[in-house]
Design a protein around this nucleic acid. Structure first.
Length: 654
DNA sequence: AGCACGCCGACT
DNA sequence: GTCGGCGTGCTC
């Protein structure tokens, strides 16, 4: 006789592919009170004494499993940390990427903090309903009511941000995009639903949080970011279980246990920080798309540029478009082909000098450079070959004027350097970094305040007084009132990187810097011409993406097609690739050897066959994982047989 | 991952 | 006859 509620299914918290399914357990009488779907449990596995953590997923009818059931050993905590929505999301994302659901849950559910949980449980008994914001902001610059209706109408849109800064009530400044997204979130929460706002890094997060501080009560906002301690993280997480909130965070915010999700917004989805580095490597954009589909929320991809991925969704009709009305087009002058003769001979054209000199009378001027340091790259003076460390072959660089060249990998000083190619002993500096640019500009503009900001030493804000701000791309300080001019110096050098995405990345770096300019200010894009320069000047990034997409389609490149890379021992990779129905794939690239003695094949396939490819590869991973054994001891080689790794849609692969 | 089951060589 | 090698498979 089935006793309802006495048998439950549990997902084990294990990275082993063969354990990625539900196991049935009996719930003993003593645990009935706290056993409910979503709680963490301890369950025995195979032999008494061995226990595994897991999540109670659901109650089940007895008899689904023919063998004898073990009993749940312990309910770790009565808090149902795995909500049904997040479970559905984890399962779908894992299946889609040939990974395990528990790997996704490790991203979605922070480690338990007993004290935090106790405090939360105690407060919860006398919880007061959230105060819904009474002031609902109006965002100007878009068609009337357009931003307000997004969450109400459950719209899915690609939203073009307004390239301006906005002054906040506390006197600080933020990108207009942050005002737009915060307003959409406030409308959503005013309707009683949760909004998730995702940003790439803490600098964008700070802007969004400052805007929200002006628009919504502070206890309505939950943060998720990489700087949080485990305790803070768990506190934010638990508060999401209380009721509708505005969740602001990095890519992990997409997994927040949102109560009644009404909106997902992603700012600047082309930023590489949205690519999850942990298996199964689910991109935040994909997590957002799957979650939106499951929960029927509104969905916003906002940016100055438009990623080719989003363009694809627009052309499919999956996303609508919202553009500013009236259009705001910053003033940008490209200088490719202009005679370059300024005080710094080859880098800064005279026109740019004049723009900077003029603008410095009014306020801060931004100079964007590609690399930090003084001379980020060095070469042999005799033969011109790039200089490599004599110890480890790492690249050499000079961090400050007059400093001894050092290796970026091993840190050794290159005092008695000898060229590998021609035995030359003299180095020359081939490029200028932010510090050298600052030195040069400091000499050219004596008496002007110089500020250097890069990834290692970021400066977050600058005031509106005149100053020259030299920043590496992505590390530009937020200027009060906006930069009076923006010089984008190293466009040419940024574009030489060997990647399918260079142009997309450059457009993002440039447009995000230009968007920091004051109204009417001039930006100078140095050394870039052609369609890219035209794209920036006309501010028509959707047109760029629309032209890029068919190109990718003809060459079978993402995002027109999907990719799966399979890495492992040659025979295992061959078997896994051979296990995919050839009808479902376009072609296979490789196998090519990787740096660690394994091989990698890349499978290309259409979106429609994603499920078939993922299922086939998942099968191979499971079989490989349960069948592999240690090689004969004593004989060196690897400590163990290499695992078979599958990664879908790696943005850096081509 | 662990751990048990299972089928072939040296031992009391 | 059996003790134990580690190849193979399973974990509710």
């Amino acid at each position: 006789m089935a006793v309802p509620g006495r048998v439950c299914r549990v997902l084990l918290d294990s990275p082993l592919p063969q354990l990625d399914r539900l196991f049935d357990y009996r719930v003993p009488e003593r645990l009935v009170e706290h056993a409910q779907p979503g709680v963490r449990v301890k369950v025995p596995l195979r032999s008494a004494g061995r226990v595994s953590d897991g999540y109670l997923i659901e109650f089940a009818d007895e008899g689904d499993y023919p063998g004898a059931l073990s009993e749940v050993e312990e309910v770790i905590s009565p808090v149902p940390v795995l909500t049904p929505e997040v479970w559905a999301l984890a399962r779908a994302l894992a299946d889609r990427s040939a990974g395990g659901a528990s790997d996704i849950l490790r991203l979605a559910i922070p480690p338990r903090q007993v004290r935090v949980e106790k405090t939360w449980l105690a407060k919860r008994t006398d919880a007061v309903p959230f105060a819904v914001p009474t002031f609902v902001p109006v965002v100007r610059g878009y068609p009337a009511g357009r931003i307000a209706q997004l969450s109400r109408e459950r719209e899915r849109v690609a939203l073009q941000a307004i390239p301006r800064l906005a002054e906040l009530p506390d006197g600080s400044w933020a990108g207009h995009w942050a005002v737009t997204l915060a307003a959409a979130a406030v409308h959503c929460i005013a309707e009683g639903r949760t909004a998730i706002l995702a940003v790439p890094d803490y600098r964008d997060q700070d802007q969004l949080e400052r805007v929200l501080a002006a628009l919504a009560p502070p206890d309505l906002v939950s943060r998720f970011d990489a700087r949080q301690s485990n305790a803070e993280r768990y506190r934010s997480f638990l508060r999401c279980l209380d009721g509708p909130r505005i969740v602001v965070g990095n890519r992990s915010a997409l997994y927040a246990p949102a109560t009644d999700l009404g909106l997902i917004a992603i700012w600047d989805d082309g930023d590489p920080l949205y690519a999850e580095p942990l298996a199964p490597y689910v991109h935040a954009r994909d997590a957002a798309l799957v979650r939106q589909q499951q929960q029927g929320s509104a969905l916003i991809f906002a940016g100055h540029t438009r990623s080719v991925e989003v363009q694809r969704l627009v052309e499919l009709g999956w996303l609508g478009e919202i553009t500013p009305d009236p259009l705001v087009i910053p003033r940008v002058i490209p200088t490719a082909g202009q005679p370059e003769r300024g005080p710094s001979q080859d880098r800064i054209p005279s026109g740019a000098w004049q723009v900077a000199r003029e603008a410095l009378k009014d306020g801060p001027v931004l100079v964007q450079v590609a690399r930090p340091g003084y001379a980020p790259t060095l070469a042999c003076r005799t033969c011109g070959q790039p200089a490599r460390c004599n110890h480890c072959e790492g690249p050499l660089n000079v961090s400050r004027s007059g400093a001894v060249p050092t290796c970026r990998w091993c840190g050794k000083l290159a005092t008695d350097w000898i060229c590998d190619h021609c035995q030359g002993t003299e180095l020359k500096q081939t490029t200028a970094g932010s510090v050298r640019t600052a030195d040069e500009l400091g000499r050219a503009f004596p008496g002007v305040r110089i500020i250097v900001s890069d990834g290692d030493h970021p400066v977050l804000t600058v005031d509106s007084a005149p100053s020259l701000v030299i920043a590496t791309r992505g590390a530009e300080p937020l200027p009060g009132g906006g930069y009076r001019a923006v010089l984008l110096l190293d466009g040419e050098r940024m574009l030489v990187r060997e990647s399918l995405r260079v142009a997309d990345d450059c457009l993002r770096w440039w447009s995000n810097a230009i968007a920091l300019a004051a109204p009417g200010a001039t930006s100078v894009l140095v050394g870039v011409g052609g369609f890219l320069a035209q794209t920036v000047v006309t501010w028509q990034y959707a047109r760029y993406a629309a032209r890029e997409l068919p190109d990718r389609r003809t060459h079978h490149l993402p995002p027109a097609v999907r990719l799966a890379s399979v890495t492992g021992a040659p025979d295992a990779v061959a078997k896994a690739v051979g296990g995919i129905d050839p009808e479902t794939i376009i072609d296979v690239l490789g196998p090519a050897p990787t740096s660690d003695g394994l091989v990698r094949s890349i499978v290309r396939f259409e979106y429609a066959h994603g499920q078939a490819v993922a299922e086939a590869l998942r099968g191979s991973v499971v079989r490989h994982s349960s069948g592999r054994r240690r090689p004969p001891p004593g004989k060196g080689g690897y400590g163990r047989t290499p695992t078979l790794k599958v990664r879908f849609d790696d943005p850096e692969i081509l």
